[in-house]
Design a protein around this nucleic acid. Sequence first.
RNA 1: GGUGGGUUCGUAUAACGGUUAGUACUCAGGAUUUUCAUUCCUGCAAUAGGAGUUCGAUUCUCCUACCCACUACCA
Length: 521
Amino acid sequence: MRKTRVRFAPSPTGPLHMGGVRTALYNYLYAKQNGGDFIIRIEDTDSHRFVPGAEQYIIEALRWCGIIPDEGVDDEGRVVETPSERHPHAPYRQSQRRGIYRKYAEQLVEAGYAYYAFDSAEELAAERAKAEAAGQTFIYNHENRMHLRNSLTLSAAETEKLLAETTDWTVRFKMPEDEIVEMDDLIRGHIEVNTRTLDDKVLWKRADELPTYHLANIVDDHLMEITEVIRGEEWLPSLPLHYLLYRAFGWTDSQPRFAHLSLLLKPVGNGKLSKRDGDKLGFPVFPLRWVNEAGEVTRGYREDGYFPEAFVNMLALLGWNPGTEQEIFSMDELVKAFSMDKVQKAGAKFNPDKAKWFNKEYLRMKSDEELAKLFVPVLAEHGVEDDFGHLVKVVHLIKERATFVADFWDIAWYLFKAPETYAEKDTAKFWKPENVEPALKVADFIAAYEGEWNKDSLEAALEDFIRANEWPMGKVMNCIRLALTGSGSGLGIADIVILIGKKEFSSRIEKAFANSASISL
RNA sequence: GGUGGGUUCGUAUAACGGUUAGUACUCAGGAUUUUCAUUCCUGCAAUAGGAGUUCGAUUCUCCUACCCACUACCA
């Protein structure tokens, strides 16, 4: 029994999409559940699409999510570049493994599983155009490989000459003409494909001396002793090629098992989730904020105020379910509960509302102290500094009303400063002489209150006082609330008074009643 | 076009071949509350369509429809 080893192999062509995070997460959960290793490998074999900063972004994003690799990066999150006792399979960037692949490509040619192709990009484009004009699709395989310029059609001497003198040739896989490839997928079960419809994929490019995905992927998974490949559904069509490559190399016995995950779909309409959908519907598509080279900013879950645990929890349940009705899972619980056969085959439409709900749930699970700490910088943005003990009390009262820490300010700003305006609608509704007069008396009662200084005592005293006078509770209280918060909504009066103190209370009452002339009628 | 994959309330999903097809989010209504929010209760809402196998099909088979992916010297 081999030790479980799985890998997440992103291409550093931009920020990591939340679908990519989910793929990484499932890999991680699977590895940890089986006591195995989770490896990060950077697939940067396409030099044209390389984006500076993308690799760091990917590693930082995964770390934010609590997805920590066992191999591939060092303690600072950098990709390990030299083999060591801890990381014997290094380097983990394919661009740094350049020297490894050529001999494998040549091994396949020698064994007759691949051949050299000398067709230029222009020649191939011309072939495609020709086929298209005839209403067909050009496909580089048994149908026409014998009409093209390659080591199958050229003499040995010519081939040698071109190999030595030109630099734009490639190694292509020689796809069998008519063979059923039988495959098994951990999520989808048995799949069969006839090779007739497949093409002779490029495996290695002389121009940059780098392999394409297919070769690099098989060679590295083999060398890194990967036991399960858990990747996106977009790879399913190339699975036959990968099976055939393992066979051609003679690695069938140690071939990893495959699991192809469905895609994350956009919340409305059809198609996969894209950055544009996020911009349009107002939710992030990326875990972290990303600023591209043109300076354009793309929002991230972290910066939008999501807790990483909530983000991960939400993602885990998008396409997988525990088989129970439990919805809230810590990472450890996910590791225990995860199971590949509960992974959904169909694509999952992302639901931004549910993502918010998860964050709300996590927010209320946090301690008042922890949330208060997070609230400090938000307050600072509004120029407010506060005693920490007081802040904890405030947070305790408002956290059930919020989805994000940033909501705290909108919910409870009036606990930190007096209102400057009074909502017109609420004023018109409550600020009437028959309410204002008793309200003033209630205010005096509060100012003179000398009972226990806590919410329950004050509240009880207030209720007794108002009921004893047979005033309309709601209307009178709302008058006072208007004076304290500037609107007809907010915390209970007793809560507010306790938190802002008698002095501030009286000052706000005074101000509101001084303005009474202008706001009454 | 070709190849492969997929299809249960609006969304995420549950349901040994036998259930009044369940749960959560959203939405609507109600109760509680000094307002707002919370909380609680109630409600709306689904097996894509058609054959077949079976005493019985959401579940198994086939066909159709629709959706998705792939079809690069990108991953």
